[in-house]
């Protein structure tokens, strides 16, 4: 689904951070925005409520630079995690090339994680997206907290595609760039094949 502008020698890919409410999607994007040189990124746009919960999406464009004469960009989006915002999530997923599913590792968030994961697949199927064409990464966030699931258990629950799994603590940045790089590589590899 990448947009290829041969005249302007540009390729844009769309990556969506998905997951339940308060799992750390926006925290990932905010960390990337803080750490990346302003020359390699655009403005961070957030459509949030007064309580700073995502209402529609966060958006951050990142530039990879020029590859084989093509300016390559990744557009990062988050979705609103709260269950009642499903209409907005479907809109943000339109034209997606890659998905980072951010799981909250805490045992107390099991139901929310599973609901969100099933919701992701429902929405992709509804859009007639063939998931085998998408780059997908599972980020296990909040690994620094107590009472968390093991990596094996969460992988069994939330990774039926066998996608790469990355442990993270988005608040301090652990695993944030590893997740970003992994999904970007997947997206490019998949687009080359399709």
């Amino acid at each position: 689904m990448a947009l290829i502008n041969l005249a302007a020698r540009e390729i844009n890919y769309k990556i969506v951070y998905y997951g339940c409410g308060l799992c750390g999607k926006t925290t990932n994007i905010q960390y990337i925005h803080r750490r990346v040189n302003p020359g390699a990124r655009g403005r961070l746009v957030s459509i949030a409520t007064e309580e700073e919960r995502t209402l529609y999406f966060d958006f951050l464009p990142l530039s990879l630079g020029t590859v084989k004469g093509l300016r390559t960009r990744f557009h990062l989006y988050t979705v609103p995690g709260q269950s009642f915002y499903n209409a907005s999530r479907k809109l943000v997923l339109q034209g997606v090339d890659g998905v980072v599913f951010v799981a909250d590792s805490q045992i107390s968030r099991l139901d929310e994680n599973v609901d969100s994961y099933l919701n992701l697949w429902d929405n992709l199927m509804e859009q007639d997206e063939d998931p085998s064409h998408l780059g997908i990464v599972l980020q296990m966030n909040k690994r620094d907290l107590g009472s968390i699931f093991s990596v094996t258990d969460l992988t069994e629950l939330l990774n039926h595609t066998g996608s790469p799994v990355i442990e993270a603590c988005a608040l301090t940045g652990v695993g944030v760039f590893e997740t970003l790089k992994t999904v970007c590589k997947q997206v490019i590899a998949k687009s080359a094949r399709t």
Binding site: I4, L6, L64, G173, F177, I188
Partner: peptide, 28 residues
């Protein structure tokens, strides 16, 4: 045009560029 442009060469070079992307951040 897209299939010709996004070939395995592009994929390989882009993968290398991603490896070198934000070098100070990757070891976290």
């Amino acid at each position: 045009g897209g299939a010709r442009t996004i070939d395995t060469d592009y994929s390989r070079e882009a993968g290398a560029a991603i490896d070198d992307w934000f070098p100070g951040e990757s070891d976290k």
